[in-house]
Structures are given as structure tokens and as C-alpha cells.
């Protein structure tokens, strides 16, 4: 479902080639301004015009990519692993988080709570972001399954917020006792909403895991892929680019192989092979 489609900057020439850049729960959707800055920076550097497309779930984004309705997308490692073949996209570049293309799955609670582990939250409402999210769903499911629990039974209930930042809010409001979130998004929130972050603590960090990648539709013209990758890789060397990157709590981009995401493939495989994770299987369909 298309939540929002914005036409950007009329300063750009109309005859420019236009590409749609998809954003998912990997970035805080509230942070439209950073997205705009990012895209206008790309436009300036490449000469192409980029239009943002936001979806609620990774499934929607994969679908849009498969239909050619989105050309680029900033998605999560898990949907990359699961959907790249059927939807026909490939890695464009991966962000550098704390100098590496790796990130963590944080277990967060409110500051005053005494939970020490995700396992202490049994029978409590718990927030997952997207069912397909690596840090917000795959990782906690994997942990529970490895501990012999079925997540749907373990939490009462699992609350899907379809957004890491909203998972943080759900914890903040006390609607859920805990949540598994993307460490990059969490760092963004810490940076931009310290009053919220101050009420929240990270009780566990799982990982590191292969970071959320930027993907491109495989059928897109190589020149475009190349041009964009070039801009992304060189972004950290440019003060303006660095400033924009910092808003996303990343330091730059690099390029990795598909095999880089094997750890996630392994976790998903473990989950799928377990009899405990019917919920996950369900969402897999």
C-alpha cells in the first residue's frame, strides 16, 4: 500500500529521468525531512530525479520492487534474503554503522522496569516491528525458538508496529513491556528525541547482524545503478553527505556480497525448521 507519495523539488527539471526510492521501517517514517534531504542530495549528485515511496511493510516494498513500481529501496536484511529472488532485486550498497556494515537487535524496556532479558518478558505484551524485519522479528523469534518458546504463546500478545521507531514509542507509552528494535533506528531516536530515549533502556543487544541494505531492481539500467552506487560510496567524503548520513545514524556506504547475509539466512532456516514458529511461517506465505 502506498502511504505517501511526494513530488519533490520543482527546481528539478521536469524532463529529468525520475526514479522511485522506497523507504521502509528501517528509517523513522516521521523523518521525512531527512529523506528529502537525502534524495535531493542524490539528485544533485547524479542528475536524476528521485521520488520517495513509503510502505508500511517489507512485503509491500518487495511487491512494489517486483512490479517495477519502486526502483531503489532501503530495506532490511531479512526481506532481502527472502524476497530478492522472487522480486528481482539486488544489493546496491550497505550502510556503515559504527564503521562497519553491521548492526544489532536491541531488546528495550522502560527505564524503571526490572527486566534483564527478553526471556523475562514472558506473558507480557511485546512489540515486534515488521514480521519480516530481521532485528524486530527474526532475531527475537530466533532467540525464543532457540530457548524452546513459541513467540505467539510467549508474549501476550505480540504487537506489530511495522516500525522500529513506533516500537520504541510503544515501549515509551507503556503499551508494551518490551520491544526488539533496530540499533540504528534506536540511535536515530536517541539523537533526535532524547526525551523519549531517556525513558528507555537497552537490556540486551543481539548481533552483530548484516546491516539493512539498499537494494536496486535488477532490471534497472546499469548506468543508473552505477551512478547511484558511486554517489553513495563517496557520500562520506563530502561534508554535506556526511551531515545527511549522520541524520540516519550511519557513517557511509560500502559494498558487500550476497553471502554477507548468510547469518540471516541461517536464522530463518532455523526458525522455519522449528515446529514452534508457525507464526513466522504464516507471515512467510
Amino acid at each position: 500500500m502506498i502511504l505517501l507519495a511526494l513530488l519533490l523539488a520543482f527546481s528539478l527539471v521536469f524532463s529529468q529521468e525520475t526514479y522511485r526510492f522506497g523507504f521502509t521501517a528501517v528509517v523513522a517514517k516521521e523523518d521525512v525531512k531527512s529523506v528529502e534531504k537525502f534524495l535531493s542530495y542524490l539528485s544533485k549528485k547524479t542528475g536524476y530525479r528521485f521520488v520517495p515511496v513509503f510502505t508500511k511493510s517489507y512485503d509491500e516494498m518487495s511487491y512494489l520492487l517486483s512490479r517495477g513500481m519502486v526502483d531503489f529501496a532501503y530495506i532490511c536484511g531479512a526481506p532481502y534474503v527472502e524476497d530478492k529472488d522472487y522480486a528481482g532485486f539486488e544489493l546496491l550498497a550497505v550502510p556503515l554503522y559504527r564503521g562497519k556494515p553491521l548492526y544489532y537487535s536491541y531488546v528495550i524496556t522502560r527505564r524503571e522496569k526490572n527486566y534483564k532479558s527478553i526471556l523475562d518478558l514472558r506473558g507480557k505484551p511485546y512489540a515486534f516491528s515488521d514480521p519480516k524485519s530481521n532485528s524486530g522479528s527474526v532475531v527475537p523469534t530466533y532467540i525464543l525458538v532457540r530457548n524452546g518458546y513459541r513467540p505467539e504463546d510467549f508474549f501476550k500478545p505480540i504487537v506489530y508496529t511495522y516500525s522500529h521507531s513506533e516500537s520504541i514509542l510503544a515501549v515509551y507509552y507503556g503499551f508494551v513491556e518490551g520491544a526488539s528494535v533496530d540499533s540504528i533506528v534506536f540511535d536515530q531516536v536517541v539523537k533526535k528525541s532524547p526525551e523519549i530515549a531517556s525513558q528507555i533502556k537497552v537490556i540486551e543487544a543481539y548481533g552483530p547482524f548484516p546491516i539493512t541494505p539498499m537494494v536496486v531492481r535488477s532490471q534497472l539500467d546499469d548506468d543508473v545503478k552505477y551512478a547511484l552506487r558511486k554517489v553513495l560510496l563517496s557520500m562520506s567524503r563530502d561534508p554535506e553527505g556526511r551531515k545527511i548520513l549522520s541524520e540516519f545514524a550511519i557513517e557511509g556506504f560500502t559494498v558487500v556480497d550476497d553471502s554477507f547475509y548468510n547469518p540471516i539466512r541461517n536464522m530463518i532456516a532455523v526458525i522455519k525448521n522449528s515446529t514452534l514458529a508457525y507464526g513466522y511461517e504464516k507471515s512467510d506465505k
Binding site: P125, A127, P157, V159, T161, Y162, E166, A170, Y173, F175
Partner: peptide, 12 residues
């Protein structure tokens, strides 16, 4: 859809 979060945002 048991979208608790959606409901919560509404009641909030």
C-alpha cells in the same frame, strides 16, 4: 487484524 498498536494510537 488485531492491530493493537493502531488501536493504541487511536485511544492514545
Amino acid at each position: 487484524n488485531k492491530d493493537y498498536w493502531g488501536l493504541f494510537k487511536f485511544v492514545k
